[in-house]
Nucleic acid binder design. Structure first.
Lengths: 415, 415
DNA sequence: TTGTACGCGTTATCAA
DNA sequence: TTGATAACGCGTACAA
């Protein structure tokens, strides 16, 4: 491997000139630049990342701290983040925490040594004080599909406004915060006060679900939430949007097995309910599986909604109405925020709130649909079979069993 | 951040002594060691990975080259690999290739600069010559759920034995190669000849599926394979095991949408078939969704099998009979192989062949099961409802629609 | 057994 | 605009 020194001597210039050309510094003559570039090409020189790291203290590596990569929401977020990081010349290492604070702590501690920054999904574990973190090694919180966190405090606006920890709230994708109305004020939880974060507006999402379900005539709602604890921001947003709805939470992780269990509990506790609103697609898919097993028509008797828009939701029967988080945009903001901090931005913690959108699918609309109820997802191929004309999807032969269910499907919530 | 120099002066010893203690070199007196360790503790010194990297040329980072992290098989493999790497003091960066050879090439080229080694899932893209890779930066191929590759050549044994590229075949988990019988001989494809690999024995897996389907009386099989190309080793193993079965392949990726399409094609092309054998769980789940939509009983009229044992297979209706790849063990072998190469092992390319096992579930057994047909999965909680006593699963209330289907379910393949 | 001194490849300071 | 030179923190011949 040739070094810069060899490049320099071959080009007949000094080491520093090579460095200047390589790093694109402004004050270099075209002549020198050309000589250096030729020498680099001839020698096949490539920068030594190790030496560069030693010098700059940077690795170009971002850690993604996530509880479990195997969940769809985590792997989707990871893929989005990796793609975006690569676009911006960074790499991503995965650090699964298995939900244990000590693992998160270790990842955070390794920042500066192995990573330039940590992107942490969800809230910081309770035992970790954000003030103890070195500001030179940025930590960005992401509160999205995997774990929405206390995003909007329940405190009255004046109290929130008085608080010293009030952050700048940006709304890059439409003025989300403004649109939430005046009754609540954005305020970060204590753990997030001094940390950057990119969140989705969980209240707006919850209200979108609420509005949609009203549109399709559902009012007796049971919420299947996330486990109590750090990651239940959207769950609480749901319980605000559906003021009287009971909330069932899994004891551990919000996976499909939990979705089955909770759905069974919901049926037992509220037999007359007409909608299961889930804080996580995985829960919703588990719930669908139980409802199917029990012969309960979806959405005929019970509508189901999810959150996260994982791919699987397009292949369930019925397809799953859900909240799409706009992961590419989310990832872009995360990486940009990381880069800004890395570039020396020392401004107070920035809070970016993105707005999700609802994808109306069969688990609330039914197979035939109920006609256009607004935008039905802009992404290509997400909702190919949800046009107003019914039955023109990729399922040419109607399912007799589904047809049997469809009778009661259209009546109750159109009346 | 304190440096080793400061530690040395505080301990009253030389830099080299600190280095010795830190790196656990043998020739150090207990007295010096203790002094150094105290100084380290007092100063809170931690090694500077950047400096260490510059000196050693190592980063402790492994790249995982994978087409798309969002697929279940990829994220499961990634999680297993990350966990195992961490146990062995290494980290993993994710490098999605999106199936493009140039991306793989870039990852490979970055090896040595950013990574110590590359773990590549599937076969190397055609354009990449393994001989062109620097042996100092090991590349380990993994042919498992995501992409089984040409594992057992179709050439007759004598030809294979004559070939100069014959590798040492290990069978750490039972003598897989020995059990394949004499008719075929392990031989790596050209691309794999000079590269280490950890594979699963796809022929053994295929024969396990074949045997199980015979046991439950299925013989008119259609194979839903992976896309033609590099990653279709298990598909071809299936077509060997089921000699006369037609093989349908997706044009692009083997995902759920493809599973739906192929299932529809299979029904059209072979209406009398009684089993869909899929090379990928995702395909199988897509197929299940289509069959359900068409009101076709599974396994009543058609049995379905998958490959990979992704979590979702436990939550489909019916639950999915599949091949479990033993990812933790696979990951262990991969990381150990990487470490061996990193530690200077220059022996010829090693081939490790692991044996998968079949998990018999409802998509071939039916809800009631057909009595014990062998081990039904050892992992806790994988097959909770598959005991010989029927109907004791987590579904207390029978699904009327399923009950209607169940009539023909039990007869055809018990006779 | 311990210490000295050098080199790894790069970036940055400062004088020319 | 350019160039000599000093770090960056650690590992390791080599000498003691």
């Amino acid at each position: 491997m040739p070094t810069m020194k060899e490049v320099a001597s071959r080009a007949g210039v000094s080491l520093k000139s090579v460095s200047r050309v390589v790093n694109g510094h402004p004050n270099t003559s075209a002549e020198v630049r050309e000589k250096v570039e030729r020498a680099i090409a001839e020698l096949g020189w490539r920068p030594n990342t190790h030496a560069r790291s030693l010098r700059t203290g940077r690795t170009g590596l971002i850690a993604l701290s996530v509880p479990d990569l195997r969940t769809s929401s985590a792997s989707h977020l990871a893929q989005a983040l990796v793609s975006e990081a690569e676009r911006q010349g960074l790499r991503v290492a995965i650090e699964p925490s298995h939900g244990r604070a000590e693992r998160v702590r270790r990842t955070l501690d390794a920042c500066g040594a192995s990573f330039d920054a940590v992107v942490h999904v969800g809230a910081l574990p309770a035992g970790i004080d954000p003030a103890s973190l070195d500001p030179a090694h940025p930590v960005v919180l992401v509160r999205a599909a995997e774990s929405l966190e206390q995003a909007w405090a329940d405190a009255p606006p004046e109290a929130a406004a008085d608080g010293p920890a009030r952050d700048a709230a940006d709304e890059p994708a439409g003025n989300a915060a403004g649109a939430t109305g005046g009754s609540r004020t954005p305020r970060d939880g204590a753990a997030a006060a001094s940390l950057d974060s990119v969140d989705t507006d969980s209240d707006a999402s919850a209200r979108a679900v609420h509005h949609h379900l009203r549109t399709v005539g559902r009012s007796r709602v049971v919420i299947l939430g996330r486990e109590a604890g750090a990651a239940d921001g959207f769950t609480r947003a749901l319980s605000r949007a559906f003021a009287d709805a009971p909330v069932l939470r899994p004891s551990h992780t919000a996976d499909r097995a939990a979705g089955r269990e909770l759905a069974a509990q919901a049926l037992a506790a509220a037999p007359a309910s007409d909608a299961l609103v889930c804080a996580e697609d995985e829960l919703a898919i588990g719930a669908l599986s139980l409802l199917h097993e029990r012969g309960i028509a979806v959405p005929g008797r019970i509508a189901v909604t999810g959150h996260g828009n994982i791919d699987d939701g397009q292949f369930t029967t019925p397809t799953l109405t859900t909240i799409d988080l706009g992961l590419p945009s989310l990832a872009r903001h995360v990486v940009e925020q990381v880069r800004a901090r890395l570039d020396g931005d020392r401004s107070p913690a920035r809070r970016i709130v993105l707005r999700a959108r609802i994808l109306r699918r069969e688990s609330t609309l039914g197979l035939g649909g109920i006609g256009p109820t607004g935008a039905v997802g802009g992404a290509a191929g997400i909702d190919p079979d949800l046009g107003p004309g019914s039955g023109s999807g990729p399922s040419p032969a109607p399912d007799p069993a589904a047809a049997a269910d469809r009778g009661p499907e259209e009546a109750p919530w159109l009346g």
